[in-house]
């Protein structure tokens, strides 16, 4: 033993690196992306491609400006910007102008992620912030021109132009809502590239669950949203499935609300986080008559430090002190 290595913990390292997790997320998003291409045509490849490319480029440019050598940048590259770009691209609809994904990705990476310190330091989910930035900036483009999927719906109810399924659900126009199967498969429904096919998103979610990238808890978010909509609407259970299956709830719950950086650290905190997400989403959806998932996740991301502050984690190995009162009382 000539050399004694002294190093800080951790000494045992698992394979679970940021890079691997991010690649897993990318793989999990692929089914939704593919279904988007099937439904909305090859324009989706361009939009999502531009988003991913500009996200990665933005990260590289920022680091180059910060005078990091190329070697270090390549070593540091952990695919988080790819995930951000992919998520942002899937959150746009297929007819947006070409500069939207570029601007959104640049904003997400540079302003939300890099300025605050890079991977793991972002205060909200970058893709979400990028989407909201685009939503505020180009409200005309973002809110109009939704394309409906090229494949006809199975249930027989076709949507009138411009109407989203969620809008009809919230208004209670049940004769205008496509069947639950249509909502689940995303056939004949207007929406963003990645949000229409709930089946593909669920598949991705299950993959992430199997790979242990995420746990089952986002299900709380989805269920609470549905249940709370039912409660608000006067215990009318007809609202349950359509309110879950329409809009961007699946995409938000599985891929955005679960961002490690912007989730509470404690178990109880996580429960509070998801329940609040569901309640606020349902409540605001009914109040505004539109999709609010991205805004709600954004706001709750900002509340995470607050939750972490009030929910104190139990120290490792902590045992509850035995009650001595009863002994005293006995004496």
């Amino acid at each position: 033993m000539e050399k004694l290595l002294i190093s800080n913990s951790p000494h045992i390292r698992s394979n679970s690196t940021t890079k691997r997790i991010m690649i897993d997320v990318c793989i999990a998003l692929l089914p939704a992306f593919l279904m988007g291409i099937v439904y909305f045509g090859p324009m989706c490849i361009l939009i999502v491609g531009l988003a991913v490319l500009s996200a990665v480029l933005a990260e590289f440019c920022y680091k180059l400006i910060m005078k990091k050598p190329m070697r270090v940048i390549l070593k540091e590259f952990d695919y988080t910007s790819v995930v951000t770009g992919l998520l942002l691209g899937l959150n746009l609809h297929s007819t947006v102008a070409w500069y939207l994904p570029i601007l959104g990705s640049a904003f997400a990476i540079i302003v939300v992620k890099m300025i605050f310190g890079g991977t793991g330091k972002n205060f909200v989910n970058p893709a979400l912030a990028g989407r909201i930035f685009l939503f505020i900036s180009f409200s005309a483009i973002m809110a109009n021109g939704w394309a409906t999927t090229s494949i006809r719906n199975i249930g027989g109810v076709s949507l009138t132009t411009g109407a989203t399924a969620l809008g009809s659900v919230l208004k209670g126009n049940f004769d205008k809502i496509p069947s639950n199967l249509d909502l689940f498969l995303g056939t004949g429904i207007a929406g963003c590239i990645g949000e229409t096919c709930k089946a593909a998103l669920l598949l991705g979610g299950i993959y992430l669950l199997v790979r242990r990238v995420i746990d089952w808890k986002p299900v709380i978010y989805i269920l609470v949203t549905g249940l709370w909509t039912v409660v608000i609407k006067g215990f009318d259970f007809n609202y349950f499935l359509p309110s879950i299956l329409s809009g961007g709830l699946f995409l938000g719950a599985i891929f955005m609300a679960t961002d490690y950086v912007t989730c509470p650290n404690t178990k109880i905190g996580t429960y509070i986080y998801y329940v609040l997400l569901g309640v606020i989403t349902a409540w605001l959806r009914v109040r505004t008559g539109g999709e609010v998932v991205s805004f709600v996740i954004f706001v709750m991301n900002l509340c995470v430090p607050l939750i972490d502050r009030f929910v104190v984690p139990k120290p490792f190995g902590y045992q509850k002190p035995e009650k001595k009162k009863s002994e005293k009382g006995g004496n």
Partner: peptide
Amino acid sequence: FKIEFFTHQAGALF
């Protein structure tokens, strides 16, 4: 070409 974000309050702070 306009980015409406900058006309809002958030844009002011930014």
